[in-house]
Computed example of a mutant assay.
Amino acid sequence: MREDRIRSALDRCYDAVIAPNLWADALQDLARAFDAAAMMFYPYQRNLAAADPRDPNKSFTKVPISHEYQELIDEYEKNRWYLNHYRAERGLPLMVSGQSVVLEHELATDDERRTSRHYNDLYLRFGFPGYAMINVPMLDQSWCIPMLRATEQAHFNPEEARYISRFAPQFRRLINLSEKLEIEKGCAVVMGLGSLRTPAALIDWRGKVLSLNVAAEDLLGPDLALVRGVFAATDPASHQGLQAMIRNALREDRTSVGHMYPSSLVARREGRPILAEILPLSGTYLDLFDRAHLLLLFTDLNRFRAPREERLRTTFGLTASEARLAAKIGAGTELRTAADELGITYETARVQLRIVFHKTDTHRQGELIALLSRLAR
């Protein structure tokens, strides 16, 4: 009977792969089937030297999690309970060594729990003293599945651990299936953009390219290349800016677009630069297991004429001198070079550019160029 309940709940998890809004209900059912109160998917690093045992690229609130776990995990992340956490510090080496299921009593003695701040002020406070975690090692990103038991339930025991370990392959299949489905969705977007002659690439949680369309492949050459699966610009400053943009986007919550550096320029030896822009995957294309993470869009500025000064003046209320500078920047000219060409000092150009940023509601040259390139189409 218990196994039937577990398999029925697992079927609901497979439904959630297709419809991610079902994950909370499905995992709550699965937790009850295992005679637990709550469960979630939790990424871990296999690097035992990491000071912070959690994956810094992922918010815990963006992974599959059951309803009963949510309030505790919000507190866990908000007040940094993951730091110096005995369950992570002692459980991680056991999982890295290959142990299938780790239990609370393998992580702390009864005497230690009586004085443990984590145990008393977090888990007992929320009414979840019992704990077990299922190890799900993967090729790229390893996962564990913590399960909590409530105060009125007994702790997990070794016999239950052996029984639970039988279901680890099911969790691995769930993660693999979710990754494949979401990658296919992301690839479809990339290919669709290619049909519109928009160069695009799908980026994973490590910053590596999962897929790119033909339009993006056409931009590869002496100025922009793929090196071991990562975009690399030949110009050092462009490469630094491109990598910083991607790293920052990977660190941020994908729904917090306002905190990202959304654009970067790749300088060319000849011609106008390539504009790179980040588009975070969300909604329908959000991969809860985080393999497909970002869309990287490129604009070949050589394909578009430079913005006209008169249009910039009327559209954004720029003065003649501000419009002349904005047109230079929009064409991909460096600020110092633009100042020389306009016969003004670099400091004057900087002041004018700040005013242009304010009037166009942009904050960086890449953002301004992205805006003006669309205006020029």
Rank of each mutant, 00 (worst) to 15 (best):
T198Q: 14
I164Q: 01
N213A: 09
L281I: 05
R303E: 15
I65W: 04
V214G: 04
R32I: 14
G91Y: 10
G317C: 04
E152T: 11
W23T: 01
L174P: 05
I278A: 00
M260H: 00
V102Y: 01
E71S: 10
L196C: 07
G207M: 01
R172S: 13
L177C: 00
R12M: 15
N157S: 04
R90N: 14
I369L: 05
N157W: 06
A37Y: 08
F128N: 08
S100C: 10
Y42I: 00
A327F: 09
G343F: 07
A108Y: 02
R80Y: 03
P262S: 13
V214Q: 15
R308M: 11
A200H: 02
L226C: 05
T348I: 04
I73S: 00
L30P: 04
M95D: 09
L275N: 12
A338N: 08
I278M: 00
A51Y: 09
D11Y: 13
G343N: 11
S321I: 10
S100H: 13
A370C: 01
A276G: 13
G207A: 08
L22H: 12
N302F: 01
A33R: 12
M133S: 14
L372P: 12
G221K: 06
A331L: 11
E184I: 09
L22F: 06
T151L: 10
P137C: 11
L196A: 06
S256M: 12
H155W: 04
D25Y: 02
